[in-house]
Simulated scan of single mutants.
Amino acid sequence: MILKEIESSDGVLEVVDARCPNELRCIKLEDKIEELGKPFWIIINKVDLVPKEFADRCKKFLKRESNAVDVIHVSSKKFYGFWILRRSLKNYFKDTDKKVKLVLIGYPNVGKSSLINMLAQYTAASTAPVPGHTKGKQWIRISGKIVLSDTPGIIPREYASKDWAKILFPRDVEESALILLEKIEKAEGSNFKELYGFDPKADEDTLVKIAQRFGYLKKGGEPDTHRASQKILSDWNSCRLTAWWL
Score class of each variant (00 low, 15 high):
V47M: 11
G111C: 10
V71L: 06
S238L: 10
E14W: 02
Q121R: 13
T242F: 08
K135C: 03
L180I: 05
K63Y: 08
G81N: 06
D203Q: 09
V208P: 01
L207Y: 00
E34D: 09
T96N: 11
T225C: 02
V74H: 04
K63E: 15
K112E: 02
C26Y: 00
L181R: 10
L115D: 08
K98S: 15
A228E: 09
K218C: 03
D205A: 13
E7H: 11
K98N: 14
L241S: 06
N191D: 08
I105H: 02
K60N: 13
V16A: 04
I27E: 02
T134H: 05
E158P: 00
V15W: 02
S143I: 09
K46D: 07
R227N: 01
V130W: 05
M118V: 01
D172N: 14
I232T: 03
L24A: 07
G136W: 06
S9N: 12
E185F: 03
T123G: 06
K231D: 12
T123H: 05
E65F: 03
N237C: 08
P129V: 10
L207Q: 03
L178K: 06
P39G: 10
F54P: 06
L3Y: 04
G153V: 13
A120Y: 07
R171S: 09
S76N: 09
A187G: 04
N117M: 02
K209R: 14
K183R: 13
K38A: 01
K201L: 04
F54D: 06
G37P: 04
V16W: 00
P39I: 14
C58D: 07
K90D: 15
A228R: 05
S76D: 07
K32M: 04
S66W: 01
A211W: 03
D17E: 11
E204D: 04
